[in-house]
Simulated scan of single mutants.
Amino acid sequence: MRILVVGAGATGGYFGAMLARAGQDVTFLVRPARAAALRRRGLRVVGRDEVWRLDPVLVTADELAAAPSPYDLVLLSVKATALEAAMEDLAPAVGPDTAIVPQLNGLAHLDALTARFGAERVLGGVSKVVTTLDDDGDILRLAPLAQLTLGERDGTVSPRVEAIRKVLADAGVDARVPADVLTAMWHKWVFITTIGALTALVRGTVGEVNAAPGGTELATALLDEAAAVAAAAGHPVPEAERRATLDVVTAAGSPMVPSLYRDLAAGRPTEVEHLFGDLTARARALGVPTPLMDLATLHLRVHQARVTARER
């Protein structure tokens, strides 16, 4: 199976590295600066008492455009803010039988990918991995979780999905094919917007928020709002999963923050419209009140406006 991993950051880089280490035919589509760094240093995974390195096969957008070549599988792991550019870059790699597995949070990217490449090529996907890029550009693994959920959006278990699942599983990934991948995507969306809104509004880690009076109540209320939108859309969060999410966002002393908070704190653009603007718009359409999520959306939009003004 020829695999193209779009992006070699904390998520795509980690899953791609696992596949490449297992002997799969993996190529990373990266920007020229990242390509130069990886050619010089290699793709390195560090943390949790492990350090391993590989020399990845790399291609830039210009190189791919100059020699179009269809791949069997595209793992798309970019921020929503880079989605439009990524679709343009990866287009020469998409053939009639290419399957695209996006690893973005939320749902809005499915419409964009379908419009560009056709519904038959776009699967649903959810990734769960606790990694980040350190100052050297290495992938820092912070926890053992390495899970990738995928499936046909109509709920069927197709031969191509099973083939992809097996390739991932053989590489050591906890690969899952749920009964309804869209439901799995909704549930991840509930989690990521809950923890994103919580840490962004209060500007602190999960532990810091919950150590302050009212912090735990805020976490619970945010989760209730997001879960209510999912339920109204036909994807209710089971009580066991709701409890597990609540345990994470109310954990005493937890240093956890999502990547959205790190982007916010660093003054970088965030995925506000993809994650929060879309969620609150769907809430309005479904008649679900989300005053706290609306507040988080406004807060992030003001930040986004400042970033945009600074970059002009």
Rank of each mutant, 00 (worst) to 15 (best):
A112I: 09
P56K: 14
L54W: 06
L264G: 07
A37F: 07
V302S: 15
E208T: 07
Y261Q: 03
L168H: 01
A146V: 04
V288C: 10
A20T: 04
L275W: 12
E239V: 02
G214V: 14
L142N: 10
D138N: 12
L58P: 01
R242P: 00
A108V: 04
A296V: 11
V59T: 10
H274N: 11
R312E: 09
D278H: 07
R40Q: 13
D136Y: 05
D72F: 08
L133K: 12
A309Q: 13
V167M: 05
A265D: 13
A169P: 03
A211N: 08
L148Y: 09
G137Y: 08
T216R: 13
R40L: 13
V6H: 02
A197F: 14
A22D: 05
T270W: 06
L29R: 02
I139D: 03
L110Y: 15
D294G: 09
V209P: 01
D49V: 13
R121K: 12
G9V: 11
V302R: 15
A197V: 13
L110R: 14
P32Y: 10
A8H: 00
K79N: 07
D135K: 05
A61R: 08
A67P: 06
F15N: 13
G172C: 04
A80K: 04
D25N: 09
L275Q: 07
L29D: 01
A200V: 13
D294F: 10
T216G: 09
L300M: 09
V237N: 00
L246V: 00
V59G: 06
V157N: 04
T216P: 05
V51A: 13
M185F: 01
L142D: 11
D247V: 03
A108M: 03
E120Q: 06
R262G: 12
L54K: 08
S127Y: 03
R48T: 12
A112S: 15
V229M: 00
A266H: 01
G267P: 10
E225A: 03
I139Q: 08
G125H: 06
A283G: 04
